[in-house]
Design a protein around this nucleic acid. Structure first.
Lengths: 348, 348
DNA sequence: CTGAAAGCGCTAACAA
DNA sequence: TTGTTAGCGCTTTCAG
């Protein structure tokens, strides 16, 4: 029982008593075919349960190239959201999506890009932040050029652009600005001792959020206190741990800026477990506005990031200038804004 | 700037001053090639930044066929978990994964299966429950046969098998049993008035959970009360709404069995918003044991489902009997068990 | 050790 | 309206 050979267009042709060309034309509907013949062919296709071979088509240059997404982990709600948006958009265009997870390993990311090149994907969309790392950066530059050279594109989604002159499409959001506004919201509510928890300053996402935070502090005339900074990788665990450490350290604070909503959930849990009330005792803001964030109690005040939209637009731009379109690199940046819910109170 | 033609193996051959055959052999490493020649070829590949064309390979029959996953929505944590497990396993085998979302539309699911057939995927893995619908079922039977006919497989993941004789691989979990045990846990804690919220009895997943629930009630000698049943589609919203309705209806209850953890989060929120304490006033159990479930307060008592594992095993089985392996349909069912946390208390 | 030739399944000139 | 032919990029006999 080796590969039961797949039914080919020739089989259909034979059965319908026509040439392969005719079958092809019936399928493509791009050429006149006598109605009777057409019906005969259609019946043969039906009877044989024929489906065309994508690879043969692709080889002929007729294929609809797929789209590829590369992300760290589908379980991260932000990435899942972007992936979902992208999927929907791709489906709308009849495109197939390859989704590959890398577990955050840059080597795997590059490997995947390579696989996509082999595959002739019309675009490779990289979702999520990057670690700042020069050799990696250089390889990315190469990748962008290589993809461009064959009429394909590299798209960064929720990841800052590299240098200006690169054939790269970037769909990003105002990461730094969101952090600035979130911090300002805390400041405006009278908070001065604000902790920041869970961010990774070496990751583009974390770095931008830190920047916005400190800029807001500076603009608000509040001196930053290193004792109130707890770095991490944006997970629940580091939100929880960071908060617990902060509490134990005895450095007072009246508000926490969690670098992600996921970390904020950890912050909330740690505070609750310590017998503190949110927002009466401590105020909390998050970042991302996950689907889940309005549902926790208290509802989480956070920064809205249009994750689905990022994915959708990434696909749209990737598809816009198909192989024969103009090659202009594109750059779109979405706004972010604070969504006020119940986790921030005026400082007593 | 039309399709900058992609570098081909011939280009490499020309540059290295050898035949295409030799280049192919250097790539495949399946045939002796003089070291000097090899190096020349490798250099040419490097210089030209050549990557082989997957489609040509696939056409020749040498390709590594991809794997396809079909699921409703990547944003659902259960599906994301399964997808992640599957991805990792696939990556381990050097396979590419196509992930397609259907938005729960059976028509799209079928369409996707078709695309996968065109693609020659070695397996199509369907993740998640199904609605009970006969015409759809029949098409699925057809799909299973069609895939099998070309040496590919259809895999159900977290979805009950169809008829016995089908060439279908099933990786499922003891859905009914989990609900039975969760309900028993409530019963064992003295609860008699137990509401069930959020399930869709027309979906395979919901139906199994309802069955387990009612069986446990029957075995425990507790007559089921229709007034305590609130159906839905397993979302946060229906957990919330169901609970609110229950509360307003005035039918007393001391515990809620939420059909999914996601619904349980809604139940928890509704209870909290109504000024009730969990578990002091009302006990709650969920189902799924999402990553998030231990992190809410109180920690959610729930039924563990090994979602990642389901995905991993689905891939493993799909790959096990490659095209030339034996065709035996397989069926594996994972156990489920109750994870006790803090949302259930003894009935006062 | 290397190369020439055939062909995977499909489509597009070009003829008829 | 239909068929014939050639060829996409690769691998693989089969000869050299």
């Amino acid at each position: 029982m080796t590969d039961a050979a797949r039914t080919t267009l020739r089989d259909v042709a034979a059965r319908a008593g026509v040439s392969a060309t005719t079958v092809s034309r019936v399928l493509a509907e791009n050429y006149p075919v006598a109605e009777a013949t057409r019906r005969r062919v259609l019946r043969a296709i039906e009877e044989l349960d024929f489906v065309a071979n994508t690879h043969a088509r692709a080889l002929r240059g007729q294929g609809t190239p797929s789209l590829a997404f590369v992300l760290r982990d589908v379980r991260c709600p932000e990435y899942a959201a972007a992936a979902q948006g992208a999927q929907e958009e791709a489906a709308r265009h009849g495109r197939l999506c390859l989704i590959c997870t890398t577990g955050g390993d840059p080597a795997r990311e590059l490997a995947v890009i390579r696989q996509m090149r082999e595959h002739g994907a019309s675009a490779v969309i990289l979702i999520g932040g990057v670690h700042k790392d020069d050799p990696y950066r250089d390889r990315m530059v190469e990748a962008a050029r290589a993809l461009d050279a064959v009429g394909s594109r590299l798209v960064f989604c929720g990841r800052p652009r590299l240098e200006e002159a690169l054939p790269l499409t970037v769909v990003d959001y105002d990461n730094e600005g969101g952090a600035y506004r979130a911090t300002n919201h805390l400041l405006a509510n009278g908070h001065r001792r604000i902790a920041i928890v869970g961010g990774d300053p070496l990751c583009s996402v974390g770095a931008g959020r830190f920047d916005g935070f400190f800029r807001a502090l500076a603009d608000g005339g509040v001196p930053p206190d290193p004792a109130l900074v707890r770095t991490g990788v944006g997970t629940y665990a580091c939100g929880y741990r960071g908060t617990t450490e902060l509490l134990e350290s005895g450095h007072g604070f009246s508000a926490v800026f969690a670098i992600t909503d996921t970390a904020a959930f950890g912050v909330l849990a740690a505070l609750t477990d310590a017998g503190l009330r949110v927002p009466e005792d401590v105020s909390v803001v998050g970042y991302d506005n996950l689907e889940f964030s309005p549902t926790v109690r208290p509802g989480l005040t956070t920064v809205h990031v249009p994750h689905e939209e990022l994915g959708r637009v990434a696909v749209r731009l990737a598809l816009r200038s198909g192989p024969r379109g103009e090659r202009t690199p594109r750059h779109v940046v979405f706004d972010t804004h604070v969504v006020v819910r119940d986790s921030v109170a005026r400082r007593a």
